[in-house]
Design a binder for these strands. Structure first.
Lengths: 234, 234
DNA sequence: TGTATTTTATTTGTCGACAAGAATTTAGTG
DNA sequence: CACTAAATTCTTGTCGACAAATAAAATACA
């Protein structure tokens, strides 16, 4: 491991530095390796990635643009907090995007899209079988994002992506492990949604997505009220 | 005018440079002073604003994050094109956001919100009266954005803002001047929407917003097919 | 004359350094 | 001992310069 810094060439390709730190920071934020409120130190990151502050800064600007970090001018920058007080706005947006993207997928999908969607669904089923909560969260997001892509509306897709990311953080804050059987129901519901999409049944796809989303919202809300001590934050 | 560079202090406050160039570039893009495809030269901008390339670069990164400019790695960066081939995805998103934000405004607005909304509506009516097409576009966007703010869902508001911005570009590409009486109808429809919001009539607000949006879409589509020579772009 | 290759030029991405602001510590005063 | 003011430290925002990547121009060659 010594040669990673002594011998191995630190040669990053010319524009790759920003992408590297952006992707990694994003993952660390969404996986709560950097929990909300964590301070972000530019110079520390610069040392860690062995590069100048300039590309670090660019990555931070992009993350700030997506609302993942907050920057106080001339002062600190830190991981954005989750707004638990207005969680209903999040649920509203989540449910609507589930419905819209699934309906559009039923309308506009092509054959290749279904293969991709089914692939993600297989991953999700595997994660449920393995009781791996973190994998469930990730594969579920990938599944629904693939559906959104099949709907071919970049406006909805980009908002949905942001919402699913935020959901990843929220769920990680509350899910330590799945103790109930509900995930198996999600697997079945996913399969029904795939069916409806493949059959180009817009109405059924929308209805299934809605029920599925409301199911999830109820589950998350149950968690929220159960552990609502966390809602009071300083 | 000579003292603007010789005598006048170039003192910008410490973090204001980025905001300055960001706001100005954004306006120039949305107003088509910089039409789609225009090359953006960092060093030229640096000279123009008498600052280093660093803050220019940060502003460009933010604009790229909003999809207003496209950056080819290691190569040029230019104003993003309007995707005329998939305009229907734009209309879908526009109509849905009109409906959702107006409905939420009816549900969640407070007294102060209505004052702001009515203020923008007055500006819009004034622009219609003056036959000022550009002012109509701007004030209409401000009006609907104020409604979205009253709905208090930041997810929808941010997407809607992006959509309205894009609409500003699209309309400027096609509207030279209003020759028909339709804008007056828009003024009336706006007033009806305000009524429904104030009365907290969710259903009526949603329906009015939908009809209003579809009205606008039809109008724009009419322009598109009329000047569809522009749809074929190299 | 047309094509391939080298050379030059332009533009972007990265760097190290410096300066401005804010937070913290230290000194000073009642 | 408490409270204010000066000084220091620390972090961020900005700058000018350099190097890599690409585009453009010039040269060589068939």
């Amino acid at each position: 491991m010594t040669d990673t810094e002594a011998n191995a060439p630190n040669e990053r390709k010319r524009g790759s530095g920003v992408r590297l730190v952006y992707d990694l920071l994003r993952d660390e934020i969404l996986d709560l390796v950097l929990p909300p409120g964590s301070p972000i130190d530019e110079v520390q990151l610069a040392e860690r990635f062995k590069m100048s502050r300039t590309p670090i800064r660019e990555a931070l600007v992009r993350l700030a643009g997506e609302g993942l970090i907050d920057t106080l001018p001339n002062r600190s920058t830190m991981v954005a907090n989750v707004d638990f007080l207005n969680m209903h706005t999040y649920f509203d947006a989540l449910v609507l995007m589930y419905r819209v993207t699934t309906q559009l997928a039923a309308k506009y999908h092509r054959a290749a899209d279904l293969d991709i969607i089914r692939g993600h669904q297989a991953d999700f089923a595997k994660a449920v079988e393995a009781q791996d909560a973190l994998a469930m969260i990730a594969t579920n997001a990938a599944f629904h994002l693939a559906i959104a892509e099949a709907g071919r509306n970049p406006y909805f897709t980009s908002l949905f992506k942001r919402i699913l990311d935020e959901g990843r953080r929220i769920l990680r804050l509350y899910y330590q492990s799945y103790e109930d059987r509900l995930p198996h129901r999600f697997v079945e519901e996913h399969n029904e949604m795939i069916e409806a999409i493949a059959a180009r049944d817009l109405e059924r796809a929308e209805r299934l997505a809605r029920e599925h989303a409301e199911q999830i919202v109820r589950q998350v809300q149950k968690l929220l009220v159960r552990d609502d001590r966390l809602e009071i934050r300083l």
